[in-house]
Design a protein around this nucleic acid. Sequence first.
DNA 1: AGGTTGACCTGGACGC
DNA 2: TGCGTCCAGGTCAACC
Length: 282
Amino acid sequence: MPELPEVETVANGVNERVRGQRIVRVWTSGKPQTFKSPESEIAEVLTGATIEGVRRVGKSIVMDLGRGKKKQDLRSAQDDNFHGQFLVHLGMTGRLLVTPAEVPMAAHTHAVLSLADGREVRFVDPRRFGRLSVVTDEGGYAGPGVEPTTVGVEEFSGLFKGRKIAIKAALLNQSILHGVGNIYADESLFRAGIRPTKPAGKLTKAELAKLHKALQQVLAKAIKLGGSSVSDYVDAAGVKGFFQLEHKVYGRAGEVCKDCATALKKIVVGGRTTVYCPRCQK
DNA sequence: AGGTTGACCTGGACGC
DNA sequence: TGCGTCCAGGTCAACC
């Protein structure tokens, strides 16, 4: 489910709760497709590491890991330049929760990180589209594309130059811009007054500027409201977001436009359900 | 090479 | 109540 605002909400919530904690034990479920890195490697990188912080990169949650120096430890030399990150991609139904160890394990729990203070970080994912991995490269994980919340209008506009794909499909392509998903693609296109099927390369300079502004406003407001809770999304504390109340088109197929009362249209673009207003979006 | 489609999973909603 | 069908916030491999 989760797109940029939901992933950011979860990452911030987990960060507040576990920053500075040490991971003492790791359990994984053994469901092969959940693990992008071998489970043994995940356990090795995480066990004994201290959580330096948790943040969002694209649609991934990145946990930065450190290793305290131990003078007697033969590995201390390499631990000094230890670069470890734990990456959590929530897929459609993934949840990352921080709970006391005594809370019963939910069905479809695929990983549990036991913390030194007795709490646990748990990854739960019924549909198993989520992915867990570790990165130990010095540079760390930068994500597949450009960060939409901070990109300037010039760079943003340049991303779509010469592209024949529909602007909606381009917004969803994570190697172009990372973090935008189906909800915020539709919502930002509505607010910019742009038809989702318009070829990305054919947008005028003015349209690109409008879209850039609309996207950043929509994302900022959604982050402020804790994301959109459609069906089962909750943050690290199990709390729902409120941006779904602001949706103008997403999930409103069959209803009328809130601005002009024209019937909204439902089509498929880039393989995804797309809702738009045929009058407001040219 | 860029663009499009289907496969991957489970569960909830809805119709009969 | 129960069964079948459809749909879902995301990727990615395999095709055209």
